[in-house]
Amino acid sequence: MPVSSTHYLFLSLLLFSIGIMGTLTRRNAVIIFMCIELMLNAVNLLLVAFSRMYADVNAQLFVFFIMVVAAAEVAVGLAIIVMMYRKVQSVDINILNRLKH
């Protein structure tokens, strides 16, 4: 059976769900961050697949911008994590419950 767009759909979906499971399962802030990156990449894959399907270049440009945003986000996010580590000497997200009512 030739590879069809449906295959890419399933693959992307699978990677996305694995990313979600990782976000929910881990307690380390850095690992959670990495799982978010995984989810972003799953979406990128799907977008590129659609771009190939519909011969539309705009999708690939969108992927480009997603990568831009992801990079900026990682920079700032890791800075925040580092600052958190300086404060509480740990990156366990369960420690961050100051917003508790």
Partner: peptide
């Protein structure tokens, strides 16, 4: 309902999902 606001990030993400 107040207990929903536990301050735990993981809790919030779970409910988001």
């Amino acid at each position: 309902l107040r207990l929903l606001q536990s301050g735990q990030v993981g809790f919030y993400i779970f409910f988001m999902v």
